[in-house]
Design a protein around this nucleic acid. Structure first.
Lengths: 408, 408
DNA sequence: AGATTTTAATTAAGTGGCATAAAAATGAAA
DNA sequence: TTTCATTTTTATGCCACTTAATTAAAATCT
């Protein structure tokens, strides 16, 4: 299909403006009709009408009076955040987290459950359903008030079909999450890759606010990226976009779980951190890690973060090296996609700046032009809640900014 | 700015539909009003009206009658391709090519001029202006009939300002192409990086027709990519997007002109091909290359392509190796961006399949999922005209699909 | 304090551009 | 020749916006 296949119509016009107004209210927190008119370039009568409909549908409410600027006081409008709610699930390698939030993604209740490695598709689905039901029960919210369920799932996800194509942590394939949950709880369900959910979460509620073109990288055992163009998630042609962990940065590197050699993941993924520590220790290097563990298996990324913060030199060195490798991967990504902002999330958030600083240094040395050398790089603001809030955000995005222009 | 900041209005509605109709005519070649209505989901009266205005403005004309399907014969509409024209320039490392085409990008006249390595900004600009004027004179087209000038420029280009930020081939910086040309010829001027122009050219008139999400890679001395999302060029935050030649694939690789080590360009760029040949010859390997050259300096990419086609084993081996390295870079790009189509252009087009086959093989082995392993990869259809036709296409894109929705 | 000015929001009327319905044009098929 | 199918145009209506005028309410000026 060539072209921006968008047919202009009255519905489009109205939907566009409705979204515009709704989103202005959402992103501003509280605005008057007059200000909306000014900022959206809609006329006051139009804004009045649209706001009226939004109030009618209970999405928006009039709240306080604003301060006068020399005339009549403005009536401030806010999202009616006690009327509707959204549910988000973060289906990670070792546990499922869940939250039920209001329309500002403010948490009302949360829940979590541990997973075992050899869980089956049915068990997993069942746990998700159970959690959704529990969140609803505990929060004491009516089901009609819930606008949808978002799922941030690790691995390869087909977001259109709502299927987890491949979940490496439990070696499961083709889990029909959307269909299963939809049938069980009778709510709209959205399924998305965890890094993509995270990116959307950071865009709306975290470090990405105000940007419309960013990349958020989830560094854990795997390394995935969520790419945002024009305020929307970019999925690519087969929902595979963002697999930065499997970009090759070392032709002669070690074999990766994907079969290739020298993937970023093999030198900067969570497992590689622990392996590097074990190797260094076997060379006889001293470290706090020795005092805190009795067997090799106890050495984990988290522990190394902890020790680094406590001043352990080996741990710091390891994280620094990880940061450098990660920096290479990020530089490649920056040279290719030139995002306005790069957000680093996942376990790394816990590693203070031991990873981030060397990462930034590599980018500032190796990226191509002065402008991209200075790419704005920060760590996740939502930290370990990024994916679950991101999952909620998928639901909110559908509510607040429906994809009117059928951009893929 | 959060959100699809698009205000719905009557103008928007109309522009959207006007573009929709215009583009349907352009991409179909010849269609009836009825068919346009069917395909665009506009109503027949609306199409009649919009077509009337397009005919009025001389962009569209009624051509032949179509064949009846059991009723009145349809009147076929076509782009009025003898009324308006566009100019494209390809400012390469060693020469400038220019074309003047009709609105279907069909060449009317062309021109080219050689450049010397130490050319100045003023000289370069002067040559461009001279060529534009010459194209107009020779074609005998009135200046009012020319809708604009597009420039595909190698190196780093700021397309918004129309400035060539850095042109590595002649070590020039900050050439204000747009302003200079605009002043001299008094026509709308668009300046774009060569790979990006190429991508747009292939999208509209080459191997990319029918896709709305593709990457076109220009393999020459440098390796640049033009990224198309939603039928539009993606520039990134500083117009730097697409610099795949400077993505690092070999941590321990050779130093690149950019200062980093192991950039794709160092193992798959044009220079590396010649260097590899020289090295192999110095090891005493036999080759047609020996017969065709007297000094090392004569060994070039082109010559190697030629020898490979003539059956020279060494040349074939070298190209195969180049293809493998290029395949790594392409795999990384595919894993990151998951394009629907990958087009390989530049000098490589002349290398037959000696590069493309190993490239595809690497992708099919190393890309992450089955779907992306099978990414549609072909070589450029427009071949050495890709950039210059792409330059024309920038002008046409502005005419046919103005950026109504201010997507960046 | 009262009049004036400023800002906010609503009401009323007008307009642009698309849709629906019907008709005209034209040709194939019965 | 009549009937039917398809293409295109004409006439009318309607939707969602805009412009202009009005009401509301507060700050500032005299």
């Amino acid at each position: 299909m060539a072209m921006s296949n968008i047919t202009g119509s009255f519905q489009l016009m109205k939907s566009l403006n409705r979204s515009l107004v709704l989103n202005k209210i959402r992103s501003a927190g509280a605005v008057s009709r007059a200000e909306i008119a000014k900022e959206t370039k809609l006329t006051p009568p139009t804004v009045t009408k649209l706001v009226g409909e939004l109030i009618e549908s209970n999405l928006v409410k009039e709240s306080d009076m604003g301060t006068s600027k020399g005339g009549r006081k403005p009536v401030l409008l806010t999202i009616n955040d006690r009327q509707f709610f959204a549910i988000g699930l973060d289906v990670g390698a070792r546990k499922i987290r869940g939250v039920l939030t209001d329309l500002n993604a403010k948490e009302i209740v949360n829940d979590q459950v541990d997973l075992h490695k050899d869980i089956s598709s049915d068990e997993l689905t069942m746990l998700m359903i159970k959690m959704i039901k529990s969140l609803i029960t505990v929060s004491n919210v009516k089901k009609e008030q819930i606008v949808g369920v978002g799922v941030g799932m690790h691995g390869i996800v087909d977001n259109e079909k709502g299927v987890a194509r491949f979940a490496p942590s439990y070696h499961l394939r083709e889990i029909p999450i959307k269909d299963s949950l939809k049938e069980a709880v009778n709510l709209p369900v959205f399924v998305e890759n965890d890094a993509k959910a995270m990116a959307l979460g950071e865009l709306w509620f975290g470090a990405g606010r105000g940007f419309d073109n960013l990349i958020c990288v989830n560094v854990g055992v795997g390394i995935g990226a969520g790419i945002i163009f024009n305020n929307r998630l970019y999925h690519g042609n087969n929902s595979v976009a963002g697999e930065v962990g499997h970009t090759i940065i070392d032709l002669n590197g070690r074999k990766c779980s994907c079969g290739s050699y020298g993937c970023l993941q093999t030198v900067a993924g969570g497992d590689s951190i622990a392996e590097r520590a074990i190797r260094e220790l076997s060379f006889g290097r001293k470290s706090l890690l020795m005092n805190k563990t009795s067997t090799r298996d106890e050495i984990s990324g988290e522990l190394i973060y902890q020790c680094a913060i406590e001043g352990d030199e080996l741990s710091q060195d390891i994280l620094s090296e990880t940061g450098k490798y990660l920096g290479i991967g990020m530089t490649n990504m920056i040279n290719l996609m030139n995002p306005a902002k790069l957000i680093i999330g996942g376990g790394v958030s816990k590693a203070d700046n031991f990873i981030l600083d060397p990462l930034k240094e590599v980018v500032s040395k190796k990226a191509l032009t002065d402008e991209v050398k200075n790419t704005d790089i920060t760590k996740s603001e939502l930290e370990d809640r990024a994916t679950v809030i991101g999952a909620v955000t998928i639901v909110l995005a559908d509510l607040f900014t429906p994809d009117l222009l059928n951009l893929k």
